[in-house]
C-alpha cells in the first residue's frame, strides 16, 4: 500500500476573514448546550477557530460567581464573532454591535442578522441592508446572515460586507441546504467568502455546502442538539474537510446510465 504521507496534494488556499487566516472552515455557535463545559468540549472537538456569541443583559445580583462564557471561550484562543440575534430592525442590530465592540475591547468583527419574523427567523433584508451600511460606515467588519438571493448577496458584498452568509434553511430547523442552485450561484458570483449560515442538520448537509464551493459553514443547533454533541462536533469537522476536498477534486460528471468500472477486455466467458 502507498504511504499516504508521501502523496503530495496541492495546498488549499486557507480561509481568510478580515485579514486573518484560518485552518478550519467550520464556524460554530455557543447556544443551546447543556452547560458551559459541554460547550467548551464540543467547540474543541469541532476544531472551530471562529465562535459566535450573543449579547444579552447581565443578571444582576443573582450569582456573581457564575462562569462567564468568555472565560471558557477565551478571545485569546478564538476569534469571537458576536451576533445580533434577536434583532428585528436595523437600529437594534447596530446598537447590539456597538455594545459587542465595547465588550470585546474594540474588536470590530460582527455577525449581522436582522430577523423578519419569529416563525421562520428568515432575514429581514431591507433592515439588513440599512444596518450593514451603517455598521460599515462606523468601521465594523460585517459578516452578514442573509437570504439566498444571489442579487442581494452581491449587493451586500458591493456595500463592503466581508463575508456573505446565506441561510441553507431556517435557523435551528436542521432541514439541510434547501436551494443548492442559489447557493452555487452566490458562490460563483462572490469575491468574498461565502458561508452557509443556518439550516445544517447533520454531517452530510455540511458536506453538501462545501461541495457547492462554499468557503465555510456556520452552525450551532446541529451540534448542540445532537444526542452526543461532542461526537457530532467531530463529525462536522470531518464533513467540512471532506466536502472541501471533494470540491477541490472536481467531481465526476453525472451520467444518466451505467458505465462499467471493470474493463470489458479480457473477459474469459
Amino acid at each position: 500500500m502507498t504511504d499516504q504521507s508521501q502523496i503530495q496534494l496541492p495546498e488549499d488556499k486557507p480561509l481568510e476573514i478580515a485579514g486573518r487566516v484560518y485552518k478550519s472552515r467550520l464556524l460554530v455557535g455557543t447556544g443551546k448546550y447543556r452547560d458551559m463545559m459541554e460547550t467548551g468540549h464540543a467547540i474543541e472537538a469541532s476544531g472551530a477557530e471562529i465562535v459566535t456569541v450573543a449579547v444579552r443583559r447581565t443578571n444582576l445580583g443573582q450569582n456573581p460567581d457564575e462562569p462567564n462564557l468568555l472565560d471558557v471561550i477565551s478571545p485569546d484562543s478564538f476569534t469571537i464573532l458576536p451576533n445580533t440575534a434577536g434583532c428585528y430592525n436595523a437600529r437594534d442590530a447596530v446598537r447590539t454591535c456597538k455594545l459587542a465592540r465595547e465588550l470585546l475591547n474594540g474588536h470590530n468583527l460582527v455577525k449581522l442578522e436582522v430577523l423578519g419574523e419569529e416563525k421562520t427567523l428568515y432575514p429581514n433584508m431591507t433592515e439588513t441592508l440599512v444596518a450593514a451600511e451603517e455598521l460599515i460606515r462606523d468601521g465594523f467588519q460585517v459578516m452578514v446572515y442573509c437570504s439566498d438571493d444571489p442579487l442581494l448577496c452581491k449587493r451586500l458584498e458591493e456595500m463592503g460586507c466581508i463575508a456573505i452568509m446565506p441561510l441553507g434553511a431556517p435557523i435551528g430547523s436542521g432541514l439541510g441546504i434547501q436551494n443548492r442552485y442559489n447557493i452555487r450561484l452566490i458562490v460563483e458570483n462572490a469575491s468574498v467568502p461565502v458561508l452557509v449560515d443556518a439550516g445544517v442538520g447533520t454531517a452530510s448537509d455540511a458536506t453538501i455546502a462545501m461541495e457547492l464551493g462554499c468557503d465555510g459553514v456556520l452552525m450551532n443547533t446541529a451540534i448542540a442538539q445532537a444526542q452526543d454533541p461532542i461526537r457530532m462536533a467531530r463529525a462536522m469537522k470531518l464533513a467540512i474537510e471532506s466536502g472541501r476536498e471533494a470540491y477541490l477534486s472536481g467531481r465526476m460528471p453525472k451520467k444518466a446510465y451505467a458505465s462499467a468500472s471493470s474493463p470489458i477486455d479480457g473477459i474469459f466467458f
Binding site: 455557535g29 455557543t30 447556544g31 443551546k32 448546550y33 458551559m36 460547550t39 459566535t52 456569541v53 450573543a54 449579547v55 444579552r56 443583559r57 447581565t58 444582576l60 462567564n68 462564557l69 468568555l70 469571537i80 458576536p82 451576533n83 440575534a85 455594545l99 459587542a100 465588550l103 470585546l104 435557523i171 435551528g172 443556518a198 456556520l218 452552525m219 450551532n220 443547533t221
Partner: peptide
C-alpha cells in the same frame, strides 16, 4: 443603564 455580557448564541 444597560449592562450586557456575552452568552451562548449562534
Amino acid at each position: 443603564v444597560e449592562i450586557v455580557h456575552a452568552i451562548g448564541g449562534g
